[in-house]
Write a protein that binds this DNA or RNA. Sequence first.
DNA 1: TGTACATCAGTGAACGCGCGTTCACTGATGTAC
DNA 2: TGTACATCAGTGAACGCGCGTTCACTGATGTAC
Lengths: 207, 207
Amino acid sequence: MKRPTAYHHGDLPRIILRATLSLIEQEGVAHLSMREIARNAGVSHAAPYHHFGDKAGVIAALAADGFELLEAALRSAVERAEGPQARFEACGRAYVRFAVGHPAYFRVMFRPERASAEEHSRVSPRAHAAYQVLVEVVSECRRAGLGLGVAPRALVLTGWSTVHGLASLLVNGPSALGAGALDNPERLERVVAKTLGTLLAQGARDR
Amino acid sequence: MKRPTAYHHGDLPRIILRATLSLIEQEGVAHLSMREIARNAGVSHAAPYHHFGDKAGVIAALAADGFELLEAALRSAVERAEGPQARFEACGRAYVRFAVGHPAYFRVMFRPERASAEEHSRVSPRAHAAYQVLVEVVSECRRAGLGLGVAPRALVLTGWSTVHGLASLLVNGPSALGAGALDNPERLERVVAKTLGTLLAQGARDR
DNA sequence: TGTACATCAGTGAACGCGCGTTCACTGATGTAC
DNA sequence: TGTACATCAGTGAACGCGCGTTCACTGATGTAC
């Protein structure tokens, strides 16, 4: 094993991604520029092109990493919980925690801009894998007789909506509201998790 | 009453806002440019500066209008429903409908970018007014003995999260998921509304 | 171990571009008398 | 009603800028013999 040196350090990709994340946290994904990323990484502005083909490549890499992290967080939460309903709730809490803990990833993952086909093909499978965790948990719930009143897919998406909404509001900031409206994220997280449980237990009729 | 003519038509502000909305729908808010807006409005690229001070001014105007429309939609939904719980649910459905019906407004209203102080002062009161509708409905619910198990503010925010999440996923597109995952928004909207009802009826214990 | 060579991962100059904004201008509209 | 003038709402040229990307280059690293 060789230790990479500063020049040709072999670590540049990671450093670039880190720099990008920190820029996104500070200024949002809209005004991100390759030159600023390179500056932030302490490297000439052409260097990133050796590792990521272009700007979209950097963002796609981040989004893919983000979904991988999310999936890992969800799986780990699911494994630690006992019983289907607890797993469903734990999933929801983990989702919100992920978003709050990694706001830059979260923004990149769900930014509405059109992605190139190449970017999409790279990110989409990772996203799907994360989504699959939720699907599995819901399946397990149904086998245990929970949430039978709602179509499974609707249950998955409603659960997802609930936690995604809280996550969005927490991450994107209550640009809308007076300060302090969201000042107790942990309590909100708990309430939202309870909501998920209620959703399951009640099995609201899907007409 | 004078009819404005094409030159000095007096309608340019409205036309510019319309053009901006249509650009946002097509390409997102990220790559929006003043010159493109002017082009889209069929006017020289300096013309918009006479009506909105700068680029941020155009976006602030849209966001303010958006919150005004949202408030109107919520109030109208509330007025048409009977009973506190029905009003709460109607509010949620109206929120989702608003987002789906006016995706460009929705994106501008909740875009995470830092706003200037001036922009904030212009948009914030409108946002607060819309938020207030929810607060009032929740108050009414509590007076009717609904949702007593949850702190009122938590109830407002959880309800908001639930509908905001669905709205975000519908508007920002399931860039994450395979096509078709969200192909029945109406059914989802119904399930989400039911979730709100469940939230209230159950009054999930906060802790 | 030493040497020759290929490849890798950086650098810095250069390109062309669209952008936001300003400015002097001009034609249309509104107002005073 | 007519005329003089102020104001309003556009135009088009011009500015300076940072950007994404390309390119020839160079120094460091890895490999064959």
